[in-house]
Design a protein around this nucleic acid. Sequence first.
DNA 1: ACCTGAACACCGTTCAAGT
DNA 2: ACCTGAACACCGTTCAAGT
Lengths: 217, 217
Amino acid sequence: MSARTGRPPKISRADIVSAAHRIIDEEGVSGLTMRRLAREVGTTPMALYHHVQDKDELLQLLLDDYASGMPRPELPDGEGERIVVAAVAMRQALIGVPWTVEVLRADDLVSVHALWYPETIIDAAVRAGLTPETAVDLYRIIWHYTAGEISARAAAGRRREGGKPTYRSRLFANLDAAELPRLAALGERWEELTARDTYEKGVRAIVQGLLPMSASS
Amino acid sequence: MSARTGRPPKISRADIVSAAHRIIDEEGVSGLTMRRLAREVGTTPMALYHHVQDKDELLQLLLDDYASGMPRPELPDGEGERIVVAAVAMRQALIGVPWTVEVLRADDLVSVHALWYPETIIDAAVRAGLTPETAVDLYRIIWHYTAGEISARAAAGRRREGGKPTYRSRLFANLDAAELPRLAALGERWEELTARDTYEKGVRAIVQGLLPMSASS
DNA sequence: ACCTGAACACCGTTCAAGT
DNA sequence: ACCTGAACACCGTTCAAGT
């Protein structure tokens, strides 16, 4: 039908996106630059700008692509438990790609494919007896908690592999026991205690604190 | 006493830190570059490296400087309420300087002056009957929640002033009501609902969900 | 001891030109 | 229509030299 004219394309958006995924997997988001990406695809940096508007659009594309593969777990009957399961799945999906949280936070980048999680959580909350408004509050509180946990986890990972002289442990070793008795008492154990995975515990606390008694257990 | 020799210094660490604060206040963290900082101080970029090891150390210095001015509110008697007050104060202190959260998250940068908050929260939790281990869990859950909330808030602010075509509202306008009924029903109201400040509500939920019944109210 | 200048190895993006 | 090359306006940091 349409009169396709002009030079045939050498690269496609799909090529670009998959190359970007490869780079991120191997070198992290910080390794993803337009120039590095061009090398991976086998073109010049400027050829990319013919397929995406700018780096932000590229990240959006990447996010959509990833979100479409996020798992949707089986949901249990109880409303409170359903929220916990959805939240844990959401966090699990993000844990492998912490850069998405950075991108999500950095701008108004949301993917349609990821909306199953808020939908599920808000639906369960309403069924448990909350108003839609309060259900949105519950979801947002869980989201903020999740985003913060993922970021802290990612930073901790970087710290470990960076092998820096652990400023934190030096700090904890020299605490003034008179001013900060609890922290001083914990001392050495801080590292070990903060390594524990307490995500689900937090979600359960939030759910229990916000859902009507009967539904939260 | 000591034989101070050599060329007298033109700039000090204090000069650098205060100039950095000025830049951040006016242009945000992203505006803080070694070159821009050198211009503000009135030297060359390389002169800075004589006073700080690298940009990371500079950020650490900045954080310490800011943390030393963080307010320590009057604490109420009830343990649960004490935790809420400390958390709200911590968040309030960070809200004006969201870049600190980005720095804190980005690496193992903690400041001694900011440790009053975890100390207070953990102490109240232990007094309420939690084991030290569980008290640390409670603190970390609150911290993750707080960090996530601050980041989301900072991103939302950037979004508003950036005046981008609000991808999010376009997304919400075109939702499939069959697949995402709750979100579709919320539709237009999403923007308004997510603008509400629900931080304290979240902290209360976490406290109520984790403290023994008697102490949390 | 403290500061400077030139340089290295990078960024994202614009602009004008080529096929 | 799609791609290229050169260029602009940036980064953090190293290195050798100046006072």
